[in-house]
């Protein structure tokens, strides 16, 4: 079990008479990609600002790398990179100047900065645009520069608030690729997002909050079982949908087979959490099913989210 990088314990935060957070608690382990999900106004951005020391907790405790966010502000800031949910950029600067500026602000000398900026430009695939003015870049490109800015200090923890918001599909996919690469490099990434399908695919663990209260926090896989559900797989066949629809219930451990309307697809609900994708796929191949696609059904994260969070406008 890796040590927690972020520990949030019974944190409550009020803005005048509005209770933004109401005793939330969760923790994020080192080297993981942790999703942070909640409806609008749930308190996600407030939590992120508390973790990155922009706000001071009123009650409860937040520790980052074991340091208290109230008393160890500078040490914490040295170790984390925060990307807000808006473009926070000096648009009259070139990409290189912008990154060089932040590297210098973190105290790196000129020679070292040149290497650092070169590295982050390579990582975010922005080398060819380094002399472009930021104001002329597309939204996706600006988001990459924002991410590059977060990385100039080589932080161990990245806090990303809605990094994929407003991006086109290509830019979103490229951003997710960069995040995967960063996880491979050992960074801990705490990402707030509304795009559940991508989070489900990307994240090792997740915290769901609603109206300032933690609804779930733990491994992504466990989220499904925490709701009393069993794993569901989605199977797409190449031909003869009807025939396979009749034969699939005979597979060992399959409890229900549900055809997807208008598509050559089935949703297979299995009877035990022990039946994983590998064993199911082995059975399907043995049966001779002409498999066109097979995956764990991601729809469940949406369902879990809907089940855990309340409908309606917060009052």
């Amino acid at each position: 079990m890796s040590s927690p990088v972020i520990e949030v314990n019974q944190v409550t935060h009020l803005f005048k008479d509005h209770r933004a957070l109401n005793g939330i608690s969760f923790q994020v382990d080192a080297g993981t990609l942790h999703g942070f999900v909640g409806p609008n106004g749930a308190g996600k951005t407030t939590t992120l600002k508390l973790i990155c020391t922009l706000l001071r907790p009123q009650t409860g405790q937040i520790r980052v790398f074991g340091l208290d966010v109230r008393s160890d502000v500078k040490s914490i800031r040295q170790k984390l990179g925060y990307m807000p949910d808006h473009f926070s950029m000096y648009k009259q600067m070139t990409v290189y100047e912008y990154l060089d500026f932040f590297a210098a602000a973190y105290g790196h000398v000129a020679k070292r900065r040149d290497v650092i900026v070169g590295d982050v430009l390579a990582l975010t695939d922005m080398e060819g645009r380094k002399d472009d003015l930021i104001q002329g870049l597309s939204r996706g490109m600006q988001q990459r520069v924002s991410l590059a800015r977060v990385l100039v200090n080589d932080p161990d923890l990245l806090l990303l608030d809605e990094p994929a918001s407003g991006l086109d599909p290509r830019a979103r996919i490229e951003l997710m690729e960069i995040l995967r690469e960063l996880r491979r490099m050992g960074k801990t990434i705490f990402i707030s997002s509304h795009i559940l399908s991508e989070l489900a695919e990307l994240c090792d663990s997740v915290t769901i909050i609603d109206r300032g209260v933690t609804k779930y926090s733990g491994p992504m896989d466990d989220l499904l079982y925490a709701q009393g559900d069993r794993p569901v797989f989605r199977l797409r066949v190449e031909v003869d949908t009807e025939q396979w629809g009749a034969r699939l219930p005979s597979l060992q451990g399959v409890e229900a087979v549900e055809p997807v309307e208008g598509k050559p697809e089935f949703r297979l609900t299995v009877s035990s959490p022990d039946i994983d994708a590998n064993s199911m796929l082995t059975q399907l191949l043995a049966m001779g099913v002409p498999i066109a696609g097979f995956q764990r059904d991601q729809r469940k994260l949406n369902d879990a989210f809907m089940d855990l969070t309340e409908r309606g406008v917060r009052t």
């Binding site: 900065r113 380094k130 003015l133 002329g136």
Partner: peptide
């Protein structure tokens, strides 16, 4: 006055001073 790109200038080690002298 605005161009799409230009040669990037070198930031001083005193980064915030450099930025606000320009900005």
């Amino acid at each position: 006055m605005t161009r799409k790109s230009r040669v990037s200038s070198t930031v001083w080690d005193w980064a915030l001073g450099w930025k606000d002298f320009r900005q």
